[in-house]
Nucleic acid binder design. Structure first.
Length: 486
DNA sequence: CGCCGTATCACTAGTGATACGGCGGTGCACTAGT
């Protein structure tokens, strides 16, 4: 067992901090004692420090599975800035020669970043089994259940990877996971029953939760213009359609003094990078984005996250609103909902999953399968499953279960939108937390269309209180001020 | 499922009503051809 004194000495020496954030020390101690861990820590609590600490302390190689090339790039740069040179991201950005060079000298690196798809490469896998691995990390581990079944099936293969690597000590990191998603992760990673789950509350008390209903698009657009004119910037608006993302971006640029930019997967990589950098640097006030935006974004002062469309599910909703208020100051998470939005989200939930009819056609025509796996997403998925050795009846079962799950998740977010009760309580219950939220239970009910959030921010400012609904405040008085109720 | 753009119809030549097809999110790696 490593002493507390040693832990703090290393923290100070290596990272310059004198205190651990909630959960960090527990995770590190557990890993140093050789126990695999699932860590569910809310955004902004320094998840990457957990494995960086273990790597630098033990001086044993850490392999990090990361979902995005840009995320790997950021982490590599951060570590290099800290003075750690033994870092590499092994991905398709590298030339053949560079990759060969790195693979031949893999044991020299302390931190190796890798996308799950790279593990299909037998040369990479062989090189990895050759080194003395101290720790395997799955960063953004909710991707296993969010993306594995119908978007990036290689996420389902990570358990086999662990096995091939001789079951190294493993850390699965995420900000949001229900009990079911947690057990999904544990099963996929073959973590066994001895694994420890370290879970902090998903609650972010400084984020005010609200939903407003609009009758139609026009009404919604008017309200949106009104909102962004009065709310403090910077802000973030999520869309479920690239086209509408662009259109509303243009509208908001025309109708407000803010600098608004659009961000989605349809834009060239260079533009996306530029928009992100300008947002981080404060030259852009507001981003209109699809779900492509956000992972790895660490901007502390985002004051509001508005959803123009219905979010996909409560897990992704929490991921997305979690980007607001990382500085701990008063922030707002608002869904602008109109009944017609349900159709779009339902379509998106189901369209990626091959139907039984499609499966049958593909099964009967291997040529068609191979040909269309280039352009058609569901054929591509079937193709990957086949390579993974999954039979057609198994696929059919997996996809139909997935359809059910996605529709249930949609029902849950709809229930959240329509709830008459406390929204925070609803979310905490969904994430299997029993604690009572520390705010006046009527605040959500009272927030309605005439509510001016500006008052919320003003009050937080004048009281110099990041979370005006935190314990110890005079709720009745605050509510009287805010809602002008008696 | 619901929206949007285009096609087609009507009636006395440009516009309005209806019908219908297509579209709608997220990324890795690898390959072929320049």
């Amino acid at each position: 067992m490593v002493s507390e004194k040693e832990l703090y000495a290393h923290l100070k020496q290596e990272f310059g901090f004198t205190r651990f954030k909630a959960g960090q020390k527990q995770v590190i101690q557990r890993l140093l004692a050789g126990g695999s861990t699932v860590a569910i820590l809310p955004t902004g609590t320094g998840k990457s420090l957990c494995y960086q600490f273990v790597g630098t302390y033990t001086n044993q190689t850490v392999l990090i599975i990361s979902p995005l090339l840009s995320l790997m790039q950021d982490q590599v740069e951060q570590l290099r800035l800290k003075g750690e040179k033994r870092v590499v991201a092994l991905n398709s950005n590298l030339s053949y020669a560079a990759k060969k060079q790195i693979l031949a000298n893999l044991h020299q690196y302390l931190f190796i970043y890798l996308a799950p798809e790279m593990l299909n490469n037998p040369v990479v896998l062989a090189a990895l089994t050759d080194i003395d691995l101290g720790l395997l990390v799955v960063d953004e581990a909710h991707c296993i259940s969010a993306w594995g079944p119908d978007f990036r099936p290689d996420y389902l293969q990570l358990g086999k990877l662990r096995q091939k690597l001789g079951f190294p000590v493993t850390l699965a990191l995420t900000a949001t996971a229900t009990k079911r998603v947690t057990s999904d992760m544990m099963r996929s990673l073959k973590l066994g029953r001895k694994v420890k789950v370290i879970r902090n509350s998903v609650d972010r008390p400084n984020i005010f939760l609200a939903v407003e209903k609009s009758a139609d698009t026009q009404e919604k657009n008017q309200r949106l213009i009104q909102l962004i004119r009065s709310l403090p910037a910077p802000g973030l608006i999520y869309f479920s359609s690239k086209k509408q993302c662009d259109q509303i971006c243009a509208l908001l640029n025309a109708k407000s003094k803010l600098t608004v930019a659009s961000y989605h997967a349809g834009l060239p990589a260079g533009d996306r990078y530029a928009v992100q950098q300008q947002f981080l640097g404060g030259q852009i006030d507001l981003i209109c984005a699809t779900s492509a935006f956000g992972m790895g974004i660490n901007k502390p002062d985002i004051r509001y996250v508005i959803h123009y469309h219905l979010p996909e599910n409560l897990e992704s909703y929490l991921q997305e609103i979690g980007r607001a208020g990382r500085d701990g100051q008063q922030s707002l998470a608002l869904i602008l909902y109109s009944e017609q939005d349900r159709g779009l989200q339902q379509h998106l939930a189901l369209s990626a999953l091959p139907t039984n009819a499609e499966l049958e056609i593909l099964q009967n025509s291997p040529q068609l399968l191979e040909k269309s796996s280039q352009e058609n997403q569901s054929a591509q998925l079937v193709w990957r499953y086949m390579q993974m050795g999954v039979s057609f009846p198994q696929m059919s079962a997996v996809f139909s279960q997935r359809r059910t799950e996605k529709l249930q998740a949609l029902q849950q977010i709809l229930a959240y939108v329509n709830t008459q009760g406390c929204r925070r309580k609803f979310i905490l219950r969904y994430f299997d937390e029993t604690k009572t939220p520390q705010h006046f239970r009527k605040c959500c009910q009272l927030a309605n269309e005439s509510f001016d959030y500006q008052q919320l921010f003003d009050l937080a400012k004048t009281k110099n209180e990041p979370n005006i609904f935190a314990g110890g405040n005079d709720y009745e008085q605050i509510l009287k001020n805010l809602f002008k109720t008696d």
